[in-house]
C-alpha cells in the first residue's frame, strides 16, 4: 500500500475504521460511541482535553482496551481476524523505553521487526532496516548505547524508530511529542513527514498541533468520550478545536480531503 496520498481513499479499505466504539476503564465509561476512520495515506490527529478519551481510543484501535460495543476494522479486516501486524507501527504513550535490565538502542528497535521475521532468524535485511530506522531519527551513532542512558526525547526517537522499522502502512502514536525537547520534536516532525510521503497513514494523539501542524489532514476532537468535531484541523493554534470552545465547526458530513492533500504547499 504505497499509493500516494492523493489517490488514496478511492476504493481501498480504510487503514482504521472504528464504528460506534464504546469502552470502559474500571467500570467507568470512557468511550461512548466513537466513529473514527483513517484512510490510506491520511494523517489524522486526535485532540481533546485530558480524560476526553484520546488515549483510550488509540488503545482500543490497537486492541489493548477491549471494545464493549462497536466494530473495529484494520485495513478492511475485522480486528479479531486481523493478522497483518507488519502493516501497523505503534508508539505507545511513553513512560520510559527502559526496563529492569539494560537494553541497547539496537535491541529495542529490533523488536519492531518481529512482525516481519516472526520465529525465523533475524537476517541481514532486518539489520539493515534497523540501521535505516535509526538513521532516520538520527540515533544510529547511539545504536550500542543503553536506552536507559538516553534523554526523554532521545528515548522517544528510539520508540518511533521501533514503530517504523517494519515499514508499516499505518503509524499509530500516542502523544509522541510529550516531554520531548525541541531538537527531538523537529527530528520527529521530519521523520513523520518522510513516512507520510512514503504513503503511510498516521493516527496520532496530540495535545496541540505544534510542529506537526502542516502534516495534519484531519483533526478529530473528542469530548467526554464522544466525537465533538471531525474535519480539517483548526487553522490557528488549535484553540478552535479544543473543548471549552463552544463553536462547533459546521463541517458535518463528508469533507473534501483530496482537495486538501493536493493543495500546494501543504506537503513540502
Amino acid at each position: 500500500m504505497t499509493s500516494p496520498p492523493a489517490s488514496a481513499g478511492t476504493g481501498t479499505a480504510p487503514a482504521v475504521r472504528l464504528l460506534g466504539g464504546a469502552a470502559s476503564l474500571g467500570g467507568r465509561p470512557v468511550l461512548r460511541g466513537v466513529d473514527l476512520t483513517v484512510r490510506p495515506g491520511e494523517v489524522v490527529s486526535l485532540l481533546g482535553a485530558n480524560g476526553s478519551g484520546k488515549s483510550t481510543t488509540i488503545r482500543a484501535v490497537m486492541g489493548s482496551v477491549p471494545l464493549q460495543r462497536g466494530t473495529l476494522e484494520l485495513f478492511g479486516t475485522p480486528y479479531g481476524r486481523f493478522r497483518a501486524w507488519h502493516r501497523v507501527g505503534y508508539v505507545p504513550q511513553r513512560t520510559s523505553a527502559a526496563s529492569g535490565v539494560p537494553a541497547s538502542v539496537r535491541e529495542v528497535v529490533s523488536t519492531g521487526r518481529l512482525s516481519r521475521h516472526g520465529l525465523r532468524p533475524f537476517r541481514r535485511r532486518d539489520r539493515e532496516a534497523v540501521d535505516r530506522a535509526l538513521d532516520a531519527v538520527g540515533m544510529l551513532d547511539r545504536a550500542g548505547d543503553g536506552v536507559g542512558n538516553l534523554s526523554g526525547g532521545q528515548q522517544q526517537r528510539v520508540l518511533i524508530a521501533r514503530a517504523m522499522v517494519g515499514e508499516p502502512d499505518l503509524l499509530v502514536m500516542d502523544e509522541p511529542m510529550a516531554g520531548v525537547d525541541l531538537a527531538s520534536q523537529q527530528v520527529l516532525a521530519d521523520t513523520l513527514e518522510r513516512e507520510v510521503r512514503r504513503g503511510a497513514a498516521v493516527l496520532l494523539v496530540l495535545h496541540e498541533l505544534g510542529p506537526l501542524e502542516p502534516l495534519i489532514d484531519r483533526a478529530v476532537v473528542l469530548r467526554d468520550g464522544c466525537v465533538a468535531h471531525d474535519g480539517p484541523p483548526p487553522p490557528a493554534a488549535g484553540q478552535h478545536a479544543l473543548p471549552g470552545h463552544d463553536h462547533v465547526h459546521p463541517h458535518g458530513g463528508d469533507h473534501d480531503r483530496r482537495a486538501r492533500t493536493t493543495a500546494p504547499g501543504l506537503l513540502p
Partner: peptide
Amino acid sequence: AVCQDEEFARVTG
C-alpha cells in the same frame, strides 16, 4: 519484546 514493552509486543502480532 514481551518483557520490554507488552503493549507494543501485542501490536507486533
